[in-house]
Amino acid sequence: MNKITIINYSMYGEKKMPILIQDRSMVTPGEVIAEGDFSIGSHVYRREKKIVSQVIGLVTIKENFVSVVPLKGKYLPRVGDLVIGKVTDVSLSTWIVDIASPYHGVMRTSISLARRFDPIKDQTRKIFDVGEVIVAKVFSFDRTRDPMLTVRPDNRGGGNSPYLGKLVGGRVIDVSPSKIPRLIGRRGSMISTIKHFTNCKMIVGQNGRVWFKGNNFEDELLVLRAIEKIDREAHTTGLTDRIKEFLEEAKKQMTSPSKEKKSDKEKRSEKKS
């Protein structure tokens, strides 16, 4: 098991910088990806002049930028992320929300709500109760404090903010947060494909939670299967097409049994006559 030793000296600039590993190939922790003055992205670190992977993942090399997309891992909050969480505790002025991360989300009445909160009249429990599922945005997070969440829609940019607040009905599924970009697809291609085929409402949280609600059980099951397939095969290529095929096939199967029944009836009526 020797390392892949395709040394291609990158053509960028005069400096000869060897990239030891091909783009999109798999690396393990401690494996050297490249050597030289590259700028580094997430999940890689510099050791002397070498750039080394921190996780099992797929290498991304763009010009002189090296990073690794991990295949697994816990969600680490980032400011501005849309997350789906479950309320685990309610106090007089705060909610504690489980967001599938090493740190729990904190929502304060003073900064998190769209409308004014009067601590004398209003009750936190009546807005969000324990066990309820909410979509929220990460308002602030740093190493020293737990992430602050908000459900106040942000329309400062003039655009429409996505729905924030309580989620009623539907189902929530956990996937690996590193696979969320794959689930959304390029410019939302994957998610719109799933929505198109199943007519389900879907909200994808950056923390690896996906909420969906369909018109019937079959559609929801289909969404679930599709998400599971993406979660399992996220590191393979041509996934969007395969999901499309999968959904088409499943849809056909869903509609064809009823047709067969009809044809059976027809046959019977023919026999009778």
């Binding site: 393990t28 922790p29 401690g30 999940h43 670190y45 050791r47 080394v52 921190q54 996780v55 099992i56 991990p70 295949l71 697994k72 891992g73 816990k74 690996s176 590193s178």
Partner: peptide, 11 residues
């Protein structure tokens, strides 16, 4: 640990 996706310097 590597399977859990925890950042590591090395195995």
């Amino acid at each position: 640990l590597a399977d859990a996706g925890i950042p590591m310097r090395d195995l």
